[in-house]
Design a protein around this nucleic acid. Structure first.
Lengths: 336, 336
DNA sequence: GGCGCCAACGTAAACGTTTTCATGGCCGAT
DNA sequence: ATCGGCCATGAAAACGTTTACGTTGGCGCC
């Protein structure tokens, strides 16, 4: 038995399809009584409007697409959660596509979403200006998440890496640390470079006499571990380490502890991200927390605005979500 | 400028819309030469078929829906990753909806997907037989993930909790441990009860003389910590703890270490899940790894089969994905 | 009581595609 | 040379909605 169509409902209720449509969409232009009759008929037949037909005529899909890079772990899950929640509260569906390794795959994914979505949430390392101009349908509302794009052509939203890093540096300075070494992330990584920038700025403005010290890293725990060994070899020894992400901080922590250093007495350690593990390492890691779900939610909200007011095209609008300092024992000895 | 339609392509190429359609879908019934001309025209116009129109006539959406419970963390992200990958390789889109707290919300989400998807991947604590009969469109191919459903009406797929737990117990027994205490998960939780079952079975069959010992827990780290204290009070003391998940194992580990016990010499500890943190606690945690992405991928594969052969309705087919023992220092002292 | 207006309702067009069916041309076989 | 058949192509129907427009009826007002 094929699914009931609007015609079936019309016949069942003894009215025309137009009236059914009217009754089901807000019920204007229809008597309360007729509306009731139609509603009952629809219910009886378990009528569900055919989404495709509606999309075709309406030119709205009530769906937004989320294009994400291949992303393991918590960040992705939190982001999706925030997006999904915000989307649902606006009555929008969510079409996701992750794991596109190269620009070509991303472009394909983008093309495949053509016409299936009213708007796009895009987070991709390949999303430079050229790529977008090339692959993005011109009039599709889009919000960029955490892209390295500086042009004013698109709406964008990102985490406040810079501000977060400054928070950390200021925290360490407030503890009296003066020799703060920074462990860098992968070269070219936007988050990493922004965090480094925050470190530089903050140090320059708050403690111009303190030396700037950088060590190479690539966000991996191993690279943090290696950096830890380099820290141990530095003379005079730094009194604080700020790693561009938690995993490196954790690796560094291990190296320092193995060498017999006391943390935080001999050297303080700070990370970035507040991964779940951060509170479980010994000592628990001071870090910068980013409300990732909120990042997703805000991106969705921004997109929602664009959908509601397509004319009012505030393209270049940018927003950032705040980062927050979480102090744990790796920087401040337990009180008492 | 509105997007190009098939008519525009037809005009541009000097053929009828029918030929364009044929050329673009496999190109059968069309001369190689005309096909080429049409393809070029389409490319020139940046033509992308209107998804809705195609759905309407074809009655295929090329989309599958994934309904997931509100799920934080790694499990969700891995599952989605596996699903997405498998879906993409079949040319299917993925419509997700998570975070439905109660059965009503889940039902609403389900209804909203009506007609937008060709098949459904469903993982919901509310998915009992009644719920499904009530809310599931009758002819929609569906694969259940990790549900507590025993009926043979639907395709289902789950992780081998039982087998995984047996692996752990056998491992502990092989180390000579004979007093193995089990920390339970939340009552009513399917995974938890299956893991407990595996513990019971394995102990009964391989070491009938060993006592069965249970402690209450709820999957949280704190509950594991509390259970750890209870372990410390037991006389004679157990020589191994098997927690129903990693977080409890980690909490328990902390309690035991605080009390001065050496792990694994005095007491071995095992968990379940292999969360990323498991390898970073001290000592690294022996645990059972489940390939969650594979769970998602297999579910998608199962669904794909159903989509390809809708007639060949092997409804009750069940599958499980294997669990794997990962031995780390919390159960086996580092060799050498 | 007639006129006009408004609200309720029906008719039909439109959305963009696929697919069935008809048509014509070409080629091979007789 | 004619006929049959096949293949490329085109015309048009169909998918299930929404919506512009037309029609009807009732009602108020002159």
């Amino acid at each position: 038995m094929p699914a009931a169509t609007i015609k079936d409902v019309a016949r069942e209720a003894g009215v025309s399809v137009a009236s059914v449509s009217r009754a089901l969409n807000g019920g204007r232009g229809v008597t309360a009584e007729t509306g009731q009759r139609i509603l009952e008929a629809a219910q009886r037949l378990r009528y569900v409007p055919h989404a495709a037909a509606r999309m075709l005529i309406t030119r709205r899909t009530n769906t937004v697409g989320a294009l994400l890079p291949d992303l393991y772990g918590e960040f992705f899950s939190e982001l999706i959660r925030g997006i999904d929640l915000a989307a649902r509260s606006r009555g929008l569906h969510l079409l996701v596509s992750s794991s596109h390794d190269d620009a070509e795959a991303a472009a394909a994914a983008l093309r495949a979403m053509q016409g299936r979505v009213d708007g796009l949430l895009l987070m991709s390392p390949h999303a430079d200006a050229d790529f977008l101009r090339q692959n993005l349908p011109q009039n599709l509302p889009t919000v960029l998440i955490n892209t390295r794009l500086s042009g004013a052509d698109y709406c964008a939203l990102s985490v406040d890496n810079d501000g977060g890093a400054r928070l950390m540096v200021e925290h360490l300075l407030s503890l009296g640390r003066r020799r703060i070494v920074f462990i860098q992330g992968p070269p070219g990584n936007r988050d990493a470079t922004q965090r480094e920038l925050g470190y530089r700025e903050s140090l320059a403005s708050h403690a111009p006499d303190s030396p700037m010290m950088m060590l190479r890293g690539d966000f991996s725990e191993e690279s943090g571990y290696r950096a830890g060994h380099q820290v141990l070899a530095m003379r005079p020894r730094p009194d604080a380490v700020f790693a561009a992400n938690d995993m490196m901080a954790i690796g560094c922590l291990a190296a320092l502890r193995e060498a017999g250093l006391r943390i935080p007495q001999d050297i303080a350690v700070g990370g970035f991200d507040d991964v779940p593990m951060a509170r479980y390492v010994t000592p628990p890691l001071t870090t910068i927390q980013v409300h990732i779900a909120e990042l997703g939610g805000q991106a969705m909200a921004l997109l929602g605005e664009q959908l509601d007011h397509p004319d009012d095209v505030r393209a270049g609008s940018r927003r950032r979500v705040d980062a927050e300092l979480v102090v744990r024992a790796s920087s401040a000895a337990p009180s008492g």
